[in-house]
């Protein structure tokens, strides 16, 4: 399938979910940027300076991406610069999506202060996890405000798009063998599926 077809399929399928449309836009956009990023996060080295996010927002994003995809047997999202990647995606994202994303970060801090008396970064890991559990709708608690839920879906989609398009994410974590020159294609060799 051509990249254009894939994008169209992504867009259509994303539109079919219950997510806020802007969140799926931003995720689909992140997936495109994963293929076609204009600037690489990793290549900017240790001196990376976010261009869209303030230092405080950048720290918040760093905490969020590691909560979403933490280190396990393989490195987590922050270790492979997914926080930088998100700043890069936001640089070229449509203005309206960027504004909503930044608004979502503000919402997160406001909500964190209301619940815990601290900004999101200042909250304990348990409190941070508690708030994300509310946002992800997996904890059985009362639903959070749609703006917060949409923000969570957006950054979750961007984190997944960024992480699994790194060598760590695709090769180490997902186990892709990376082979691009095969003499023949074996297909399914599971005996039970023949």
């Amino acid at each position: 399938m051509s990249p254009v077809n894939r994008r169209q399929a992504l867009r259509t399928m994303a539109a079919g979910t219950a997510s806020a449309l802007w969140a799926t836009h931003l995720t689909a956009f992140a997936q495109q940027v994963a293929d076609h990023a204009h600037v690489t996060a990793a290549s900017e080295g240790a001196a990376f300076v976010p261009k869209v996010l303030t230092p405080q927002q950048f720290r918040t994003v760093g905490v969020l991406v590691d909560l979403i995809l933490p280190a396990t047997e393989t490195p987590g999202a922050k270790a492979v610069n997914v926080d930088r990647y998100i700043d890069v995606v936001l640089r070229t994202a449509p203005n309206v999506d960027r504004r909503r994303f930044l608004g979502g970060l503000t919402w997160l801090d406001t909500r964190s202060r209301a619940l815990f008396g601290k900004s999101f970064v200042g909250a304990t890991p348990a409190q941070q996890t508690d708030l994300l559990t509310r946002l992800s709708g997996t904890g059985g608690a009362r639903p959070e405000a749609p703006a917060g839920v949409a923000f969570f879906e957006a950054i979750k989609g961007m984190t997944i798009a960024g992480y699994y398009t790194t060598e760590v994410g695709l090769r180490q974590e997902l186990g892709d063998d990376g082979r691009l020159m095969l003499a023949r294609f074996e297909g399914c060799t599971h005996p039970e599926h023949q």
Binding site: M1, R6, A9, L10, M13, A14, T17, T27, Q31, A34, D35, L67, I68, L69, P70, T72, T129, L132, S136, G137, T138, E153, K156, G157, I160, A161, Y163, Y164, T165, G169, L170, E173, L174, G175, D176
Partner: peptide, 30 residues
């Protein structure tokens, strides 16, 4: 039936619809 099987370009686009976050999400995506 395109995109059936393990994606070679990142996680399959459906991965973002797996509920939750954290180590559990990462394990389920894999």
């Amino acid at each position: 039936f395109w995109n059936t099987g393990a994606s070679a370009g990142g996680a399959h686009a459906g991965s973002e619809q797996i509920p939750g976050f954290g180590a559990g999400l990462k394990r389920e995506i894999k």
